[in-house]
C-alpha cells in the first residue's frame, strides 16, 4: 500500500499484515492493494475567503488509477474538503460527515459553520485513528468567522491555520509557501499563488500530477477552475 510520503520499502507493506509475514501475492487472506492519493493538496485564506487546490493523480502502487480525479469534495454549500491518504478511507469519512452535517443544517435551519464541519471530521478521524489513513484540509466560508482553513492531519488533531498543505508533494513546497505567503492577499493573487505552488510540487513529486484543480470560496459564490496538465504555469 502506498503511503503519503515515500518511506522505506518495509513500511510500504500492506496494512493489517504484520511485519515479516510471508504472504504471497495470490493469497486470499491478505487484503487487496489499496488505492491511495499520493497527493499535493493545499488551502489558503485570503481577504474575504479561501482558495483550495489539489492535483488530480490517484495511484495504486506504481500505476496511476485515475489521472483526472477530484480530491476536493463538497461537504456543504460553502464547505469543502481536500482529501489525501487512502482513497477509500477519505471517501467514507467524507460520506459520514456529509450525512451528519446535512442533518445538523436541517435542525439548525441555517448554514452550518466551517468549525462544526471540521470538528465532525476530527471526531471521526480521531476515534478511528488506528484504522484510518486520512489527511484532510477542511476549508470554507461562514458569516461567523469568514474564510477559514482547518488542518486535520493523520493522528486526528484539528488546527486552524492561515494556510495548510498536505500530501506527499507538500514537503517540496512548504518553504516556498513560507516565503511567499502573506496575510491579506487579494483573490486573484491568492489563486495564482496556489496554482504556482501546486505546479512546483507536481513537477518534483512523482505521486502528484495531472491537472491543477482549484476552488475559490467567498461570501457570494464558489468558483471552480482547472488548468490542464500541458498548460501549467511551471512545467517539469
Amino acid at each position: 500500500m502506498d503511503f503519503l510520503a515515500p518511506r522505506s520499502a518495509q513500511e510500504q507493506m500492506v496494512r493489517h499484515v504484520e511485519e515479516g509475514c510471508p504472504y504471497r501475492a495470490d493469497d486470499v487472506m491478505a487484503p487487496e492493494q489499496a488505492v491511495s492519493t499520493g497527493t499535493t493538496i493545499m488551502a489558503v485564506e485570503f481577504d474575504g475567503g479561501v482558495v483550495m487546490g489539489a492535483d488530480s493523480r490517484t495511484s495504486t502502487g506504481q500505476y496511476v488509477a485515475n489521472r483526472a480525479s477530484r480530491k476536493i469534495s463538497k461537504v456543504h454549500d460553502k464547505i469543502f474538503v481536500c482529501r489525501c491518504g487512502s482513497a477509500a478511507d477519505t471517501q467514507a469519512l467524507t460520506g459520514f460527515v456529509v450525512n451528519y452535517l446535512g442533518q445538523h443544517a436541517v435542525e439548525l435551519g441555517k448554514q452550518p459553520t466551517v468549525n462544526t464541519a471540521a470538528n465532525l471530521f476530527k471526531m471521526i478521524a480521531y476515534n478511528n485513528k488506528d484504522n484510518l489513513l486520512a489527511g484532510l484540509i477542511v476549508a470554507g466560508y461562514d458569516d461567523k468567522r469568514g474564510g477559514q482553513v482547518y488542518s486535520i492531519p493523520l493522528g486526528g488533531s484539528r488546527i486552524r491555520v492561515p494556510w495548510a498543505c498536505d500530501g506527499s508533494g507538500s514537503g517540496y513546497i512548504k518553504g516556498f509557501i513560507d516565503s511567499h505567503y502573506r496575510p491579506g492577499m487579494s483573490k486573484a493573487e491568492c489563486l495564482e499563488f496556489v496554482q504556482k505552488a501546486l505546479c512546483f510540487a507536481m513537477s518534483r513529486d512523482g505521486s502528484s500530477g495531472g491537472v491543477v484543480r482549484t476552488l475559490v470560496i467567498t461570501k457570494d459564490k464558489v468558483e471552480e477552475s482547472m488548468i490542464e496538465g500541458n498548460k501549467l504555469p511551471f512545467g517539469p
Partner: peptide, 12 residues
C-alpha cells in the same frame, strides 16, 4: 464507475 476492493469509487 470503477470500484476498488477497499471501497473507493471513481466516476469516469
Amino acid at each position: 464507475y470503477q470500484i476498488y476492493p477497499h471501497g473507493s469509487t471513481d466516476k469516469l
